[in-house]
Design a protein around this nucleic acid. Structure first.
Lengths: 211, 211
DNA sequence: ATTTTATATGAACGGGCGTTCATTTCAAAG
DNA sequence: CTTTGAAATGAACGCCCGTTCATATAAAAT
């Protein structure tokens, strides 16, 4: 038989994962039945238990994989540079990464409350690790006199909320290209942390300062 | 008998509303049963139908009341002034209003997908009306040469996402007062839209401000 | 050709769901 | 008192839930 063995979080069948991710994102974890997921895969409900011990683990595995992928991708993309360059890299990376997997992102921040306490704590730890990456950039930038940030924790949460917000309105083939969106959000992020040198280059004519 | 009469959205019994709001916010609409709500009220499930035609209407009424309250409160608070003063008023109003009713706010943006198409469209229209209030401020500010905003629609959504984000981490009696939080977010918002006049007053020395 | 193994079925389990409704309770109105 | 009628009960409706399991199928390994 093929019943799952180890301490769960195994390589849940890709077809099952894909079906669950799609349906959880569209209808919400609580509103999707195992029978509905099975239908999407083209199988009977009982067969799902060859790939996951239960519905909760299916959700947890999706969220865990997403968060780990996020951290790994940033570790690979966010190399060195001065704080300003690192902030630009972070902003562009965050928007691009999140726009590329809207379903996973949606689940990761809408279904937190449907995780059992233990699983919730694990996902929160991963989220915290990601936030810490941005906070370190802001702290370094402040220390270097590049940013004007009274509270790095607050600024971190504010920036991440702003950036992730793109996912709520972006639609493929819309009015603005991803590159353009990244640039606009980058300018807003730089302004929000008082990094006026970064903003200056986008200014030239119409109104204000030069540094 | 006391069965509801008009085209629904009546004055759903306040105790039922309060119980539903609390439970929907904590566990999610789909995960809360009518029996659980009844238990919270201290009544049997059947009695709830004296106050609402069905569960869906209970959710819709909560969201509609919240959005209308939001629009009315802003209409009362957001009087005139130049765009900079109006933006400051909006930021402070938004944070204060949202921090005062975390359950309603949480439901309003987490349970949209559980609304039937017709109800969804009505709530979205109210949300759009609120966003338009901010967008008008940004458009006026840009026209007056006060803000540097390449796309008012994007900036509107970015600012609202950033401001509403406060609700995800704020806890009563935390490290920072609401007033302090408002001020910090105000500075970030002003920076994000390139309103350097507003930020300037906070600059003086190397990092912090005094107001 | 036989055994093994992975994959799947489909019926069944106990239980919870939203909603309805005939009936009861009980305070206020007459 | 008696009548009214709003407020609430509690049983019942048909249906869907997550999960288990004995059984079937069929490809791979022997």
């Amino acid at each position: 038989m093929a019943r799952k063995t180890g301490s769960h979080a195994e390589i849940t069948g890709p077809r099952v994962r894909a079906a669950a991710q799609k349906l959880f994102a569209r209808m919400g974890y609580a509103a999707v039945s195992m029978r509905r997921i099975a239908e999407e895969v083209g199988v009977q409900a009982g067969a799902l238990y060859l790939y996951t011990p239960d519905k909760q683990t299916l959700l947890y595995d999706l969220m865990k994989a997403h968060m780990e992928e996020l951290l790994e991708a940033w570790a690979a993309a966010g190399k060195g540079g001065d704080p300003l360059a690192r902030l630009e890299a972070f902003v562009r990376f965050h928007i691009r990464f999140h726009l590329e997997r809207p379903d996973a992102v949606f689940i990761a921040y809408m279904e937190l409350r449907n995780l059992e306490a233990e699983n919730f704590a694990r996902i929160e730890a991963l989220r915290k690790a990601y936030e810490d990456e941005l906070e370190a950039i802001l702290a370094d930038g402040r220390a270097a006199g590049l940013f004007d940030v009274p509270d790095t924790k607050l600024a971190t949460l504010a920036l991440i909320a702003m950036l992730t917000g793109v996912n709520t309105w972006y639609r493929e083939g819309g009015r603005l290209s991803r590159e353009r969106i990244e640039s606009i959000y980058l300018d807003m992020a730089l302004g929000a942390v008082g990094a006026e040198a970064g903003r200056a280059r986008a200014m030239a004519a119409p109104s204000r300062e030069a540094e």
